[in-house]
Design a protein around this nucleic acid. Sequence first.
DNA 1: ATCAAATAAAGAAAAAAATCACGATTTACT
DNA 2: AGTAAATCGTGATTTTTTTCTTTATTTGAT
Lengths: 206, 206
Amino acid sequence: MSKNIPEKVSNRLTLYHSIMVEYIEAGIDTISSPQIAQRLGIDDSQVRKDFKLLNNAGKCRVGYMVKDLKDSIEKTLGFSKTKDAFIVGSGHLGLALAKYDSFNSYGLNILALFDNDPQKIDIQVNNKQIFHISKLPNLVQRLGVELAILTVPRQSAQQVADFLIQSNIKYIWNFTPAVLKVPPTVKVWNENLMGSFLQFACKDIV
Amino acid sequence: MSKNIPEKVSNRLTLYHSIMVEYIEAGIDTISSPQIAQRLGIDDSQVRKDFKLLNNAGKCRVGYMVKDLKDSIEKTLGFSKTKDAFIVGSGHLGLALAKYDSFNSYGLNILALFDNDPQKIDIQVNNKQIFHISKLPNLVQRLGVELAILTVPRQSAQQVADFLIQSNIKYIWNFTPAVLKVPPTVKVWNENLMGSFLQFACKDIV
DNA sequence: ATCAAATAAAGAAAAAAATCACGATTTACT
DNA sequence: AGTAAATCGTGATTTTTTTCTTTATTTGAT
């Protein structure tokens, strides 16, 4: 089902999607590739090439139907396939992500949080409970959760990751700056906030 | 000074950097390109090509000096140049970023937070004060801050961005899902958390 | 009805990035 | 000392991504 969308393209698709949401809220029905291109500072033929992958034809002199584009982007990026996840690490970032309701509309369903601090246990965050980390293996099995969002301090990241892998977690969305060592059966996606910032900084602030 | 490092390369450099920090903590002096490549699931000649840009020669059969690599990555990515910033939006994400001490070691110095909720004003977060948003223009001028980290809800993102631009902010690190409309003199870096997740999801969970 | 402007579509060309391949060097081992 | 293995360095190749160019279509204006 994954149509082999290149990383760069899917990144642009999410930006297009945000613009579609905005246009829908503004009650605008159609949008043209030059409009989008200008907004994002990219080439308009790039935009059309991307839309080609969505099998969503536009109309000359008019543009594309905003609603259709939004739907096909959602379909292509799999918004509708729900993925259950646990947040591991209930510090500020973990809590922020737990409260981030947009996740839901993008198909990411956070079931619970975990921490090792006894003070945090049983607190409810956005209708999700914080459990002690020792409860995780059991809940992974019972709920069939495969994805963990890792928001612990860097120092404990590898250790916690090892525990997650032991517990049969298959995908780790890694918000820590540690580069995790994992077996080939486990997939890691590094969020790398600092890296992201440094790219920005290098581009312009220098 | 910016050596025109491509985005992809600088992203990898930050990952290499994390590995260097880890090796230094483990007391290991040298590291080879195949070791790094395997860890990140990329080609080893890729790693060498990247290091070439750093002007950091390795030694056959031995590898690279971990300490030297770390230093040249920091130099290349400009870790040492400090940039002052304001966090705008003191919700959970804003607070999480304010507490994220790693920022400091990467040259990002957060001076203060802002919000429009009277209840949050004057709270101290990690030694940084939360001010009412109306105080921002004056502080931008007095402190010469050019960078704002935007963590407000999507609905108010554009409005707040407009206010920042009026207040003479030149760079916006945008954590909201809104695609901001800005004049060409202002640079935006979209963090796009959901986009990042969807790329991950598309790759494998499908 | 005709013309001009805006736009999509699609192929060609260019640029950028990743991978491959191989020679050179260094180290460890016999 | 000689040999094998590991590793760097780098040019060549391939693949991917972006940009350019041209053609065709649609709409609005004359």
